[in-house]
C-alpha cells in the first residue's frame, strides 16, 4: 500500500499520483511491490458529443427575421433596397457586438474589442456614404474617436492583466484613459469645426483625471500612505 506524503491519504494501487495534490506515488525499491490495480475507469473515450451550443445558432437565425421583413417591405414599396440597408447594417453591427463573445470565448477580449472597433468603423463609413454628408466628418471625427476608443480599451485590458491585484493602479489607468479620451474628442471636434485652439474644454477633465491618477498611483506604491489613507477614510 502507498500513502501520499503530502495529504496522508492511502492511495489505491491503480493511482500513479495522488488525485488530491498531484504528488507522484513513492514506492520503496525492494519492498514487495503491489501489482498495479485496474484503473477505476477505462482510458478510452466514446465518440459521443456532450451536446452543443444549440441556442446560439437558433438565436442568430431568429434575429434574421426582422432583417428579412424590412428587406421584403422595402422591396415591395420602393422596388429596391433603400432604408432597409440601415437596418441590415445596424443588425450586422449588433451581431458582432452580441454574438462574437460567445464564438471567441472569454479569453480573446483584445480580439473582440478589435473586431467591434472595425465593425463600428465600417458602420460609420456606411452612414457617411449613405447620408451624403461627405467623408470629412468620418475621417476627422468618426475614425479617430472610434479607433481611439478601441485602442484605449485594448491598452486598459493589457494594463489590467499586468496590474493583477493592484486595484488602485487599475482605477488610475482608467482615469488616465478617460483624460486622454476627452482630449482626443476635443481635438477631433475642434479640428472638424476648424477652430483656432485645438485644446479647449478637455483640459478641465484632463487635469483632474491626471491628478487623481497620479495620486492613486502614489498611494498604491507607498504602503505607509496606503494604510494611512485606509485608516483615515474607512467607511
Amino acid at each position: 500500500m502507498a500513502y501520499c506524503v503530502n495529504c496522508g491519504v492511502e492511495l489505491s494501487s491503480s493511482e500513479n499520483k495522488c488525485p488530491l495534490c498531484g504528488v507522484k506515488v513513492y514506492r520503496v525499491e525492494g519492498m514487495n511491490k503491489e501489482e498495479a490495480g485496474t484503473p477505476l475507469y477505462p482510458k478510452s473515450v466514446m465518440n459521443v458529443s456532450i451536446g452543443s451550443k444549440e441556442l446560439l445558432p437558433a438565436l442568430a437565425v431568429f434575429f434574421l427575421i426582422p432583417i428579412l421583413i424590412c428587406v421584403i417591405c422595402d422591396m415591395l414599396i420602393s422596388h429596391k433596397l433603400t432604408w432597409s440597408t440601415y437596418v441590415i447594417c445596424a443588425m450586422m453591427l449588433a451581431y458582432v457586438y452580441v454574438f462574437l463573445p460567445f464564438v471567441l470565448g472569454k479569453k480573446r477580449v483584445k480580439l473582440y474589442i478589435g473586431a467591434c472597433t472595425f465593425a463600428t468603423l465600417l458602420f460609420l463609413f456606411f452612414l457617411s456614404e449613405k447620408t451624403n454628408s461627405g467623408i470629412a466628418w468620418f475621417l476627422e471625427i468618426g475614425l479617430p474617436v472610434c479607433l481611439g476608443a478601441g485602442l484605449l480599451l485594448i491598452a486598459l485590458n493589457i494594463l489590467f492583466s499586468c496590474f493583477g491585484n493592484k486595484k488602485l493602479a487599475k482605477i488610475a489607468s482608467v482615469f488616465f484613459a478617460l483624460g486622454t479620451y476627452t482630449v482626443l474628442i476635443n481635438v477631433c471636434v475642434n479640428v472638424y469645426l476648424k477652430m483656432q485652439n485645438i485644446l479647449t474644454w478637455s483640459l478641465f477633465s484632463l487635469v483632474p483625471c491626471v491628478i487623481i491618477g497620479i495620486g492613486l498611483l502614489i498611494i498604491e506604491k507607498n504602503t505607509r500612505i496606503k494604510s494611512e489613507v485606509k485608516r483615515r477614510f474607512f467607511i
Partner: peptide, 15 residues
Amino acid sequence: FTRLIKNGIPVKVES
C-alpha cells in the same frame, strides 16, 4: 479528505 485524516479517520482514495 485531509480534514478527515486530521480527525483520525483513515481514507483510501482512487480516482
